[in-house]
Amino acid sequence: MNIPVIEAHALIKNFGTTRALAGVDLAIHRGESVAIMGASGSGKTTLLHVLAGITAPDAGSAVFRPAEGAAIEVTALGESARSRLRRERFGFVFQQGLLIPELTAVENVALASMINGVRRQDAVQHAASWLAALGLSGMEDRRIGELSGGQAQRVAIARAQATGAEVVFADEPTGALDSRTSAEVMDALLWSTTGQGRTLVVVTHDADVAARCTHTIAVRDGRILGSAVNA
């Protein structure tokens, strides 16, 4: 039986008097691409943050089962351990890319590995190979301001992959892009994650993006309304 790579149970999270998560149960399996959909304020981004260990829930648990080694209860970890987990095991892609503007494309990708202790030369070499795989060959030394939105987003995808992340969390990764570029970015995101046997969790408003994923989860008022396997 396929054991979930991420499993959540009875997650509750409040922000003041607002209940963002109201008892979420969830299982995501290795190699799946899961779209979390919902209106603004439905709790979908909070759910992603809790699963990724960015935010600690008020109650409930989230467990990450790596390919090798023991399961890790993300919600039981302290702040620094969760930071380390995110740095070493997870990858992130944000709506605006949020790359470091002073660094070049290849340096942005290599930085994550360097923080994990990889030598600069090796990190840069590895980063360059990811950029090339994502169609950015020859753009390694460009600064972020010199790239288009789609190109910058592919640099962000390469950054998410360069450390060998088993799970990539994407928060509205195509939210700032036109439909054609959005499709290209999704191609790159899916190829680099599920295409390599990794797992993708993506928060989106876009039905077209959700349709590209293997599963869709609908969220409203901090609860999961239902999930569906996409054709």
Binding site: H49, A52, I54, R82, S83, R84, L85, R86, R87, E88, F90, F92, F94, Q96, L98, I100, P101, A112, I115, R159
Partner: peptide, 16 residues
Amino acid sequence: RELHRSLHHLGVPLET
């Protein structure tokens, strides 16, 4: 501020 918050999400230590 937005960039710093995203770096925190990535797990980049504040010290770095």
